[in-house]
Design a protein around this nucleic acid. Structure first.
Lengths: 125, 125
DNA sequence: TTGACTTAATTACAAATGTACGTCATTGTT
DNA sequence: AACAATGACGTACATTTGTAATTAAGTCAA
């Protein structure tokens, strides 16, 4: 595996927004920040540049503007990032994390139902 | 909320081991590192000291030896840490993370059953 | 064309992090 | 007692991270 340096927290936020937009300029990412999340334009710029350097995204020039897009698939990044967290904070066990998520009460009834469907699907195959 | 500085990755690893041991000296934590995880004794020492400074653990002296134990409950630390990850990497949505965990195939059938039980319990109340 | 704006690119820098060395005190061994 | 081994503390230091100020370059109104 081409081991990339891990994402920092700030990089994560920016990467996630880029994934959502598929392709975006610094400005577009900046504008897509969640309401209330105050981050300087230049800061977003820095994160995107670092994501590029680390190999997570690529940039192509459109005129004088850089248009960024993912180079590594989100699913991969998520797998690596969550895996790392599970290792460090849960000793590699996934269940305790799920238990926490479910019991923490941030999951709606609908989501619970959805979850159950997921489980069902996995079980009978 | 008494906002503590977030845990760093190294601190997480050490904290988790301390939680498991309940109470432990630097050496004990060092020895309890997962096989294959090579970390210098002094590094463990540093992480514990920083955990102390940040308010996550406390230390009492037994002779000339420091015995560390949690000051903040693991559940709290986990809630904060996971919450932060969910915000940054999943835009605050919990379900996508659970979906990932379930679909990533690291959960055994038994664990799936256990999960279902958890969901059942939450649903009928 | 010349400021006045916009926006992009570069550079900066303190704080946090990962990682460990050196020093000194303590204890166990001939 | 003198030496070797053990272990605690304080110190160190290069990287990485969070965050932005500065500089450069293109664009538009007068």
């Amino acid at each position: 595996m081409p081991e990339r340096p891990a994402l920092s927290k700030g990089e994560m936020e920016v990467a996630r927004i880029l994934w959502e937009l598929k392709k975006a300029t610094v400005r577009e990412v900046h504008e897509a920040l969640p309401a209330g999340r105050k981050m300087d334009f230049a800061t977003v710029q820095t994160y995107l540049r670092r994501l590029d350097t680390k190999g997570y995204v690529k940039a192509e020039l459109d005129g004088r503007t850089r248009v960024y897009s993912a180079r590594v698939r989100p699913a991969t990044v998520i797998r690596e990032t969550v895996g790392d967290l599970v290792d460090r904070l849960f000793g590699g066990e996934t269940l305790p994390l799920m238990r926490h998520l479910i019991e923490d009460g941030r999951v709606s009834d609908e989501e619970l139902a959805e979850l159950r469907r997921l489980i069902d699907r996995l079980e009978d195959q």
